[in-house]
Amino acid sequence: MLPCPVCWNNQEKNLCVLDQRLLPWEVSFIFCNTCEDVAQAIESLAVRGAPAIGVAAAYGVALGARKGKLEVERAIERLSRTRPTAVNLFWALDRMSQIAAGTEEEKLFSCLLNEAHAIREEDIAINRQIGTLGQSLLPRDGIVLTHCNAGSLATAGYGTALGVIRAAREHGKNIKVYADETRPVFQGARLTAWELLEEGFDVTVICDNMAGALMQKQAVAAVLVGADRIALNGDTANKIGTYSLAILARYHSVPFYVVAPTSTIDKEACEGSCIEIEERDGSEVREPAGHPLIPESFPVWNPAFDVTPHTLIQAIVTEKGVLTPPFLEKIIDI
């Protein structure tokens, strides 16, 4: 059984976070006692994946509530500065803010903690619904290519893109998975491969630049990716390299599916150009996994995400249905 990526420790009254920086070599946990602990866990990628970030942030606000409403406001402001692209973060913070605004001081911690629990449980249920709907897009037997990690580790449990693969197996389907390594942090190689192998899936890791050769050589049934933010027109921000994969899929006539909860939709972003793209420290490229690759003096550009235009997406799978182009009206409807 996979360890829980974000869980409340009821005995110690703190948040237990699986340290994903150490996987697959070591299964270790971080115990967050304050909002600042949670913020640092998010910024350092100890916890990652848009839904998991939202869940962790909700618990971070609850931890701040121990010191009253002023500290809740400070917690929300601090957590909002951790990762700019993942919209689930801001969705969860807004939800916690609304609960805090209508709650008396003496009940603040318990009410916010209950809301964080609800966000976590809802995420798991939503992921299972997404999986059930999405698996219908996959054949009885086939090859699926994934990018980054959109699995149990990136959510409260079960996963989005990998949840579709899990649901496919539950429906008796035989799916072979190829996982892009996903440079520069290697979430596909370290995390996707690890969690699928732990559950007995047939999975093979490939370098990011091998995806085109795979599609040329093998009959790939689909590309499944998660999302960190979806604009109203369907443009999707996801881990860097997703856009290139979508272009390759289009050239090779491979269906390209985005899998995400509706909380990932940004109703304020009319198109992809409105999405802020996080740029991370160049050390992730210069020293992948802590091993020096290129000199410190070499300039590096390290965007964490790119935007895939909606014209390259065959469907967006949500808990409220499988959306097909044109996306705008359908996204607004849900």
Rank of each mutant, 00 (worst) to 15 (best):
A227M: 01
A227E: 01
A227V: 01
A227Y: 00
A227F: 00
D228M: 01
D228H: 01
D228A: 03
D228C: 02
D228K: 01
D228Q: 02
D228G: 05
R229T: 02
R229H: 01
R229W: 00
R229E: 07
I230C: 05
I230T: 07
I230K: 06
I230W: 01
A231T: 01
A231V: 02
L232W: 01
L232C: 11
L232D: 04
L232E: 06
N233Q: 04
N233W: 02
N233A: 05
G234A: 09
G234Y: 02
D235Y: 00
D235S: 04
D235M: 07
T236Y: 00
T236L: 03
T236I: 03
T236F: 00
A237K: 06
A237T: 09
A237M: 10
A237W: 02
N238M: 07
N238I: 05
N238W: 02
N238A: 06
K239D: 09
K239L: 06
K239W: 07
K239T: 04
K239Y: 05
I240V: 15
I240T: 14
I240P: 11
G241W: 03
G241Q: 04
G241M: 04
G241A: 03
G241I: 04
G241E: 04
T242R: 08
T242Y: 02
T242W: 03
Y243D: 14
Y243L: 13
Y243V: 10
Y243P: 09
S244A: 12
S244L: 13
S244V: 02
S244G: 14
L245F: 02
L245Y: 01
L245G: 04
L245I: 06
L245R: 08
A246S: 15
I247F: 08
I247A: 12
I247P: 05
I247Y: 10
L248P: 08
L248I: 14
L248C: 13
L248G: 11
A249W: 01
R250N: 11
R250D: 09
R250L: 09
R250Q: 14
Y251T: 15
H252S: 14
H252Y: 12
H252G: 08
H252L: 11
H252M: 14
H252C: 14
S253W: 00
S253A: 15
S253C: 12
S253T: 14
S253M: 10
S253Y: 00
S253E: 14
V254R: 06
V254H: 05
P255D: 09
P255C: 09
P255E: 08
F256D: 10
F256E: 07
F256L: 11
F256T: 05
F256Y: 13
F256P: 11
F256V: 05
F256S: 11
Y257G: 10
Y257W: 10
Y257D: 10
V258S: 06
V258A: 06
V258M: 07
V259H: 06
V259A: 13
V259T: 15
A260T: 14
A260R: 12
A260M: 13
A260K: 07
A260N: 11
A260P: 12
P261H: 07
P261T: 12
T262V: 13
S263W: 00
S263I: 13
S263C: 11
S263L: 12
T264H: 07
T264D: 11
